[in-house]
Design a protein around this nucleic acid. Sequence first.
DNA 1: TTGTGTGAATCCCTTCACAGCG
DNA 2: CGCTGTGAAGGGATTCACACAA
Lengths: 212, 212
Amino acid sequence: MARKISESTIRRLSLYLRFLEEFEERGIETLSSEELAGRGSTTAAQVRKDLSLFGSFGKRGLGYSVQELSATLRRLLGLDRPWRVALVGAGRIGSALFAYDDFRRRGFRIVSVLDSDPGKIGTQWGDVRIQDEARLEQVLAEEKVDIVILAVPGDAAQHVVERVVSSGVRAVLNFAPTKLHVPGQVALRDVNMSMELEALSFALAADDGPGA
Amino acid sequence: MARKISESTIRRLSLYLRFLEEFEERGIETLSSEELAGRGSTTAAQVRKDLSLFGSFGKRGLGYSVQELSATLRRLLGLDRPWRVALVGAGRIGSALFAYDDFRRRGFRIVSVLDSDPGKIGTQWGDVRIQDEARLEQVLAEEKVDIVILAVPGDAAQHVVERVVSSGVRAVLNFAPTKLHVPGQVALRDVNMSMELEALSFALAADDGPGA
DNA sequence: TTGTGTGAATCCCTTCACAGCG
DNA sequence: CGCTGTGAAGGGATTCACACAA
């Protein structure tokens, strides 16, 4: 299973799954690669190539079964099982993420929240009590955490991620605006909101010409 | 100025700028492409290639002037001027974004916040009063908004973005977990947090083998 | 006939390697 | 010398085009 699947392919698989789920709700049973691509932002050939990396799921002359394909994608993406997630950092971003419905809906259960602020430790959030970040290693082990979401300040992030990694967690989603360094076997994704804004700013500045 | 610069190049320019700013603070005056790459996650050749798309900023045998290069990058990225940002959606994500220091620090000023919830309209957030989303078009014009941040529920996002675009705004940062469609001349970036988690889930599932 | 699965062609991005300037 | 700037080579990812299965 250690095929080398590109980042963009994975992103597209997620998209396909979303579209399939929409179609599923509407009771549509069969879909062509053309239709699947049309909704998204890619081509029919790309859809077929992406899927062919994992097997042959379509029927020639007919298309794909919405039910089957969405089940397959869920399995491929690991969404056929619940994941246990810990949230480190109970600040504003942390609390927004904690309440983010889309995570729950997709099977990501935030089973513990940690923070280093004594004013927050012990506070109850829903059915989770905020724990002391000093106990990070114990909590990750006790709660059998699969994925850590980092929502700590930038200057603390590298230190925290090292503790997370040495606790054996193999997947980290980083919201701190810092480039983190982790060993190769750990999956790390960055959500860098400022950098996205900067890309927009670049586009605007390029339109206007320099210094406009 | 309408060169076709790839998305990845822009992302790296942002990174370079961050590193340069760190070095600037530490009083370092000159840097080689090697050093600039080492901090990040790319190669010296890549750094030189990226920069060469815009001009010749280095001195052979010496490297790059930290001061000059960071000023240049700021200009290229459009960070040499303030941008006026409107935030649509004053829910949890919206409020986290409103308080996000990194935006302010980089010159993105949130000059207005809008929501459709009557319970929120009129509420004061810092020096901004939440306005009625019904008045979106007027507010965008009055406040001369350059960039809109969308933090509304997924099913409202497409409708809102169409109103935003028809008001003449040319840059949108979307936090709704929905694929939006906008005309080609509008710059759109998505921050899809669930999809990032799904990429992690994929990596874990691939490690464990299917169904583990 | 329709629409998949897939080699081949193409395009784009990254890496190499080195000429040339300070 | 040291390090940039850049053509050329290499490698991935996307697109094309078509044989083939339903």
